[in-house]
């Protein structure tokens, strides 16, 4: 275990580079605070297809296509595609990548998928198993609502702690050579379940998983939060982020103002009525690709810790009264 440090962390000596990113989103995300930063805003939730599911796959296809082109590569230069989403059997990703005809690993980490993909992609490149890997995470509000919650036209009041699934796809190309911010370390998270049962309060279910992986990351690398310029969790939302800050204060590793959350950044609750914030695999993926990546590249942010978070229940386990297991992966990314 040459690269393994401490209990759960891998240090990537070769610093696999994120050479290109792409973010393709739906109209609501385009109207949000990050609207100008996305590469493509689809005006149509259906993306010109006949179903929400097909639209999600098309977002994934567009995202990968764009990121690979931007990296100055062709799709045949990509040794592996790693992708995941929220839909049953990950159809959002598999239907999206089928036209590429490239080796594919389907991932499931719910909203933490892009973190899982960054860690595994960096391992493939650092381990010299691949020169170029494309990773992607997608979700679609309408497809997720009908799969997990209610029909769109059912008149329901959403609880204040509920979140809004982001429509879109975030893709990145990780390469052994080329310019771009490097992945320096990854701490893989354990499944943490603190007994939260309310599927409308996923931030509270996921915050302990984020706290656990953060503490482990700092201990394994023998650093403190101030090592990083920015610490961004995936989709804890407004209330989940506050809970995480409190948990980290209790552990004497206060995150301070450098802590933020992609779910909080992507929507404006005042004007967009999204309650706790954005969620879904695309939430952290498109926020990283559109906001953090350019800043890392310019050196405005020199070191960041990216912690996509995921709630790993489904509607059946919720009906059976099970609590919500959660996971988070911490990925350290530094500008060149």
């Amino acid at each position: 275990m040459r690269h393994h440090i401490g209990e759960q962390t891998i240090r990537f000596e070769s610093r696999p580079a994120i050479t290109a990113v792409a973010s393709v989103v739906g109209p609501k995300e385009g109207e949000g605070p990050l609207g100008q930063l996305f590469d493509k805003v689809e005006p149509d939730m259906m993306a010109g297809t006949q179903s929400w599911e097909k639209a999600e796959s098309d977002f994934a296809r567009q995202g990968i296509d764009l990121a690979v082109k931007r990296a100055g590569l062709e799709i045949k230069d990509i040794q592996y595609i790693l992708a995941g989403d929220l839909l049953n059997q990950s159809i959002g990703s598999t239907f999206g990548v089928r036209s590429f005809e490239r080796p594919f690993f389907g991932l499931f980490g719910a909203c933490s998928t892009i973190g899982e993909a960054l860690a595994l992609g960096a391992m493939l490149v650092d381990g010299e198993c691949a020169d170029n890997v494309a990773i992607s995470a997608s979700s679609h509000f309408c497809a997720a609502e009908r799969t997990f919650r209610f029909p769109l036209e059912l008149g329901v009041q959403r609880p204040l702690t509920s979140s809004w699934t982001v429509t879109g796809d975030g893709c990145m190309v990780i390469s052994s050579e080329g310019e771009g911010p490097g992945i320096t370390a990854a701490t893989a998270g354990k499944i943490i379940d603190m007994g939260i049962r309310d599927a409308n309060n996923m931030g509270a279910a996921m915050a302990p998983a984020a706290a656990d992986v953060l503490v482990r990351h700092f201990q394994d690398l023998k650093i403190t939060p101030d090592y990083y310029d920015a610490i961004a969790t995936g989709d804890l939302g407004r209330y989940g982020l506050e809970i995480l800050k409190r948990l980290m204060e209790e552990r004497e590793l206060p995150l301070g103002d450098r802590a933020t959350d992609c779910g909080v950044m992507i929507f404006d609750n005042e004007t967009q009525d999204t309650h706790a914030g954005g969620s879904g695999p695309a939430c952290s993926a498109v926020t990283f690709a559109s906001y953090f990546y350019p800043r890392l590249k310019e050196g405005v942010i020199r070191r960041m810790l990216f912690i996509p978070t995921g709630a790993l229940m489904n509607s059946m386990t919720s009906q059976q009264g099970e609590s919500i297991p959660a996971i988070a992966h911490a990925i350290a990314i530094e500008s060149q």
Partner: peptide, 23 residues
């Protein structure tokens, strides 16, 4: 993360404080 029943209970109480109530 300590995950004893006591720790879970404590955490759930804390979540109650941080979660907004519907009006």
């Amino acid at each position: 993360m300590e995950s004893s029943e006591k720790a879970k209970k404590q955490y759930q109480d804390m979540v109650e404080i941080y979660s907004p109530k519907s009006k």
